[in-house]
């Protein structure tokens, strides 16, 4: 890989990082509005408010960057970057098409992705603690509890796929993929997707930012560009979770003409899943904190373990 090619790949990933979350965010604006019988943004940019998020970004940049007097300045200011950057790094390793159509193939891709995504939550924790605000602190605590509860089923579900494919590398998994993996791993897919939603604190798992109780959780004290970073990280998170579910459970680039159109299938599946994320947000009310915890420990983890056992049995039956 030459230096130029590396640079090109990095720029491509950065473009995806900057553009796709905005597309998802705009889709959320419009889809959510129509699901509620509204129109959503109609002014910015002229045609059906397509530039709403650009306008939002401009607004956020103009706002004053406030740090509360009692806050821990450095930690407070560093937190948005810690929350956002891991997702950028994760995007680097998600394969889009066959034949090295990926930012950078990593040998233990699944591990890498899950590990780096776990760091992102540190940002929320830092924000929650450093804001010197009790609502922020509560939000941070809830974030931590939720992360610890949902990381495990997510890992187990991902492990099930890795076991089925016999490799930890994301392109490697896709090369092994057969269509019947979808029904085989469907429970794992459900667990992974739901746990991913919970890690992103998306509704109905948004107890850490429950606005009717704790304002906006860990992000209460943030304004301007730093607040925008947190929001952006949520939407990049949707992209990452959807793309990962696509790659691990829905066969990524597999579809008609995978060599020419593989990238298209990946992107289509990813956006379909992102649409499901939005749909779930519009439809379901927020889970209470105890329901959240019970759901993770008594539903998702047993399901993930059952899926793991099933995968093991089928795998042994196939290979023997």
């Amino acid at each position: 890989m030459t230096f130029l090619e590396m640079l090109l790949r990095c720029v491509a990933v950065l473009m995806v990082f900057l553009v796709f979350p905005l597309v998802i965010g705009q889709t959320e604006h419009k889809v959510m509005a129509h699901m509620q019988g509204r129109l959503g943004p109609m002014y910015a940019g002229g045609f059906h408010g397509w530039a709403q998020l650009v306008a939002d970004g401009v607004k956020f940049v103009q706002k004053e960057d406030i740090v509360p007097a009692d806050a821990d300045r450095r930690v407070f200011q560093l937190a948005p970057a810690v929350a956002l950057l891991p997702y950028l790094v994760v995007l680097l390793v998600i394969p889009v098409g066959p034949g090295g159509f990926v930012g950078q193939a990593v040998d233990a891709g699944i591990f890498f992705v899950l590990a780096v995504m776990g760091i992102g939550v540190l940002g929320s924790l830092m924000a929650g603690w450093a804001s010197a605000n009790k609502f922020s602190l509560l939000g941070g605590l809830r974030t931590a509890a939720q992360l610890m509860a949902y990381e495990l089923p997510m890992l187990l579900a991902a492990a099930s796929v890795a076991m089925a494919a016999g490799t930890l590398s994301l392109p490697g998994i896709l090369e092994q993929f057969e269509w019947w993996w979808v029904p085989w791993q469907i429970v794992g897919a459900f667990v992974f997707f739901v746990a991913g939603l919970a890690e992103l604190q998306r509704p109905p798992f948004d107890m850490p930012v429950a606005d009717s109780e704790i304002i906006f959780g860990a992000y209460t004290e943030y304004t301007g560009i730093r607040f925008a970073f947190f929001l952006l990280s949520e939407y990049v998170g949707i992209l990452v979770i959807s793309a990962l579910t696509t790659v691990l459970f829905l066969g990524g680039w597999h579809g008609p003409l995978p060599d020419q159109l593989g990238w298209l299938w990946t992107i289509l599946k990813t956006f379909a899943l992102a649409l499901v994320v939005i749909w779930l947000r519009v439809t379901f009310p927020r889970l209470r904190e105890d329901q959240l915890m019970r759901f993770a420990w008594t539903t998702l983890i047993p399901l993930a373990l059952a899926q793991l056992a099933l995968t093991g049995i089928v795998k042994v039956a196939i290979t023997s």
């Binding site: 990593v106 040998d107 233990a108 591990f111 890498f112 899950l114 590990a115 780096v116 995504m117 776990g118 760091i119 939550v121 540190l122 924790l125 929650g128 603690w129 602190l137 941070g140 605590l141 931590a144 509890a145 992360l147 610890m148 990381e151 930890l168």
Partner: peptide, 28 residues
Amino acid sequence: EFIAWVQVLIYLGSVVVLVLFGLMLTKA
């Protein structure tokens, strides 16, 4: 490589989060 990612996953992603959780719970 493998050990490195496990280090990140377990220590950064879980142990430190647990430590921070404890610190926040005791209102550091």
